[in-house]
Design a protein around this nucleic acid. Structure first.
Length: 175
DNA sequence: GATATGATTGTTGGC
DNA sequence: GCCAACAATCATATC
């Protein structure tokens, strides 16, 4: 496991990037001062690039947010949700995390597929002038594929959601 | 109006 | 192998 590393890393990374005082909500640094920001970097990268697959924690986070909103309708700060989710995540047993890891694995498989298609497109795109047509077609196909896959995922979700509901109930009970 | 920021963990990708 | 970036979320501050 690289958990500790990841965490420390994330913290050190963010802390290194952001002045401590500025980490308080509402004390953000002027983007211009930062020069190149994450989003700018992101924007520079390929917009067609598939989004990264969420980790198990992020899958859990999606679920946790809805629960958290219910419990704390007044708390809208993402930082609060993140903290609470992090605490809960740590307190969860491997068994409780299992369904989220399962979903994360599915999303990861999906991501790998998309990346594969994306890489193929890149190769083709770097080729010749005909690319424009094939690209469009490819994109269309990709989107179709993606939507189909999404639909399938949704189907899978429908089944999974029963599990999720159970988890959500657990959450609420715990809270 | 547009956009970065905060807070979290896990994973990926680059070097 | 290590480390930085990024994935979601949204009120809010800043330009």
């Amino acid at each position: 496991m690289k958990t500790a590393k990841g965490k420390d890393k994330a913290k050190t990374t963010k802390e290194a990037l952001k002045p401590v005082d500025d980490r308080k909500v509402g004390k953000r640094k002027a983007p211009a001062e930062k020069g190149e920001t994450r989003k700018e970097k992101k924007a520079k990268k390929d917009p067609n690039k598939p989004k990264r697959a969420p980790s198990a924690f992020f899958v859990f986070l999606e679920d946790f947010r809805t629960t958290f909103k219910k419990d704390n309708p007044n708390v809208k700060a993402v930082s609060a949700v993140g903290k609470a989710a992090g605490q809960k995540w740590k307190s969860m047993s491997q068994d409780e995390k299992a369904p989220y890891e399962e979903k994360a694995a599915k999303r990861k498989a999906e991501y790998e597929k998309l990346m594969d298609a994306y890489n193929k497109n890149l190769e083709e795109g770097s080729d010749e002038s005909e690319k424009s047509r094939s690209e469009v077609n490819d994109e269309d196909e990709d989107e179709d594929e993606a939507s189909e896959e999404e639909a399938q995922l949704e189907k899978g979700k429908a089944g999974d959601e029963e599990e999720e509901d159970a988890d959500a109930d657990d959450d609420e009970e715990e809270d």
